[in-house]
């Protein structure tokens, strides 16, 4: 689950910063995706340095990637349910992020990190 995937299996997101427009970013691991996916808020913008833009992902693509590339069908299905339940991009991201955060914690605990 936490291993890096290969080039063909990567997930491409878009770093949306007003300073440079939208820049594609390749993501090679679940950790990188968890770190990347975010919707801006003033708090993040102030405290996260260059990570102060929107980390944009097509959320349907994210769901498929987690299910097929990482093979975590349970998480993919749970994210799918949240995407159905929420309307705006911000709400969907917040819900998906929370599920992903929990899964990352579980993985870390299993690895005793």
């Amino acid at each position: 689950m936490l291993a890096e995937v290969g080039y063909e299996e990567r997930l491409v997101g878009y770093e949306m910063s007003p300073a440079t427009g939208n820049a594609p970013r390749s993501l090679y691991s679940f950790r990188e995706v968890c770190d990347f996916l975010r919707v801006g808020n003033p708090e993040d913008l102030l405290t996260k340095g260059s990570h102060s833009s929107i980390g944009y992902l097509d959320l349907e693509e994210l769901r498929r990637w987690i299910g097929s590339v990482l093979g975590d069908r349970d998480l993919a299905e749970a994210i799918g349910r949240e995407l159905e339940a929420h309307k705006t991009y911000r709400e969907r991201v917040d819900a998906a992020r929370e599920l992903m955060r929990q899964r990352l914690e579980q993985c870390r605990a299993a690895l005793s990190e």
Binding site: S17, P18, A19, P42, E43, L45, L46, T47, K48, G49, S50, S52
Partner: peptide
């Protein structure tokens, strides 16, 4: 937020600070 440089540039606040370094 105070000191929020991204916002400062569109409101033209003096000393809005660097865009990326927060």
């Amino acid at each position: 937020k105070d000191n929020f440089s991204f916002y400062g540039i569109i409101t033209r606040s003096p000393a809005f600070g660097p865009l990326i370094f927060n």
